[in-house]
Write a protein that binds this DNA or RNA. Structure first.
Lengths: 197, 197
DNA sequence: CGAAAAATGGACCGGCAAGTCCAGAAACCC
DNA sequence: GGGTTTCTGGACTTGCCGGTCCATTTTTCG
């Protein structure tokens, strides 16, 4: 069931439009009808490209958004090779989420699906794993350069940092303030910096 | 519109039952019908006690669960007066969320409501504020006892710790593992301990 | 006890949004 | 260029589930 060039474009338009819709109105305000209107498509097209219906569409949106999360942090996240790079990354994360505001399309899309679904879980886990992996790589780089304590468990530090970010974003979504996200990042980095040998 | 003793009991039974239902099946699997069956009530009762319908019920559940979150951490959270108290609190938090598993009734109840609603936001903010306040108080206690650096901004440290917890729980809900929650708590406490004068 | 208020049962309604279908237009490919 | 596949439009169906209504029972309180 290959897609023609036009078909692929339509499919992409649908995913983008759905993501946009969710970003603006939450999952609640993301009915198929809304997506249709926004993307100038008809219901048959939606079910043509996503035979599994709304769930399949939301999953596609989630994947799409998960990729975006990591992309938005590049190139900094992929090259955390100096304190300055870490600082720039920190700034980028905060700016990114501040701009996103209170609606996290990924979070919201996943929330709508039965959280137990294997597929949704896989998307989340994969995202977290990649994210953490890059953070850990950055920490190891610092260690190699003698910029932080070689005794630190890079994976655990990365896990803690990641948890802080996730919580910070969650709180941002609830309160609209980036205070907690900033506090988590800053104390986390401060901890690494303070462990300089 | 006063409630008789019986009425109050029924109302409570409904809230408890709804919370339980959500805990077991998520918001998706929490239809009014389910709550009715579980609590042996009829639809008219639901709307009698919650004229605002499902939203009002969910809000009540959220409030109920928010209170539970803090209660479950007592008495430790309220008396973080020594390193040992902090350690016990840490253990309690992890045990609590490990037991809860992948379904956070509060999170899930709030997710269902339009996230923009003022009322839901108020519940979340209030919970976070109280939580953070008690953590900050604990940090100040350590400072007063000369157990950690007096120069630390207790509120910011508490904010970071709270963010770590929230993120850790979020990741627990997604992955089922407490690794991140533990990492966040342990590195957070380690940071305070490491700042001992 | 008896009137007023509150609590309960359960049938009924209605809307909304997901999902189905088929006919016709456009694109692909030899 | 013609046959085949893919794509598109939009009307129709369906079922779920929140919400309404009213009649009946139970509680409260002077």
């Amino acid at each position: 069931m290959p897609l023609t060039r036009k078909g692929a474009a339509t499919r992409q338009r649908i995913v983008d439009g759905a993501a946009e819709q969710i970003r603006e109105h939450g999952v609640l305000g993301a009915r198929l009808e809304d997506v249709m209107a926004r993307t100038a498509t008809s219901k048959s097209q939606l079910f043509h490209y996503f035979p599994g219906g709304k769930d399949e569409l939301l999953l596609a949106v989630a994947r799409h958004e998960a990729a975006r999360v990591l992309e938005d942090q590049q190139p900094e996240l992929g090259a955390l090779t100096s304190w300055d790079a870490w600082r720039q990354w920190r700034d980028k994360v905060i700016a990114r989420y501040r701009a996103q505001g209170v609606n996290c399309p990924l979070h919201t899309a996943l929330a709508r699906l039965g959280d137990a679904t294997d597929a949704t879980r896989a998307v989340t886990c994969e995202l977290l794993a990649q994210w953490q992996r890059q953070l850990a790589a950055g920490i190891r780089h610092l260690q190699a350069d003698g910029e932080t304590a070689p005794g630190l468990d890079a994976d655990r530090e990365a896990a803690a940092l990641l948890a802080g970010i996730q919580g910070g974003v969650l709180i941002l979504m609830a309160t609209g303030a980036t205070t907690h996200l900033e506090a988590a990042l800053d104390t986390g980095l401060d901890r690494l910096r303070g462990a300089r040998p």
